[in-house]
Write a protein that binds this DNA or RNA. Structure first.
Lengths: 99, 99
DNA sequence: TGATTATATCGGAATTATCCGATATGTCAA
DNA sequence: TTGACATATCGGATAATTCCGATATAATCA
């Protein structure tokens, strides 16, 4: 839970998470796999946010630790998509009695 | 909007905001004014979070700038309560297409 | 007015976050 | 198994945050 807020506290983290909601608007198209079912591949995200490879990897790891994104590896590529369940739960906590 | 996420990105800020939801659980009782209608007075919040006067003042100012809390000054006391409208709006943004 | 109490603002020390390059690992293709 | 590519991890430089004490302001009361 603490990990979750920490991940959300980050500008770029939020930017990635938002971008993953509408990938075609925020990230360049990828060669294989539908962005909404499989997810967005790493390099596409990296290009979209415009940070170094290692930095983007760090952010994605943080988002994953907070289970704000789901990760799927296919061959040599890694695909990321939002974990809507976690996000919905957080929204509920915020909206109702929560923090 | 950016100011808002920045305020929420903060552990103690979140703690205060959460405390303000159930003041009787998180802050010592105050002499005058109902915590739910008037708000919680500064010194009560300060005692609750256990930080210096100036630090707590900083946090409350940040929360106010983000309109996450409403502030009312009565005489020499300042009362704070959650701005549920802002919080609800944020929850909605999170839950729906938002960041 | 001057003393007292409540809160705000300011400057800075210590901690933490951001972001990078270098390097390691994991996967596939030849 | 080697080489090429995709991604992860590590160490560190710089920038930002956290939190404090000192001090300023604001309100009240004698």
């Amino acid at each position: 839970m603490i990990e979750l807020f920490k991940a959300l506290s980050n500008r770029k983290g939020l930017e990635i998470l938002h971008g993953l909601k509408h990938p075609e608007k925020h990230f360049p198209p990828q060669d294989e796999g539908d962005v909404h079912t499989v997810g967005v591949c790493f390099s596409s995200i990296q290009e979209g946010v415009g940070l170094s490879q290692s930095t983007v990897s760090d952010y994605l790891a943080t988002l994953q630790r907070a289970s704000l994104v789901e990760v799927r590896r296919i061959g040599q590529w890694t695909y990321y998509k939002r974990n809507e369940a976690t996000i919905r739960a957080l929204a509920e906590i915020l909206g109702k009695g929560g923090s």
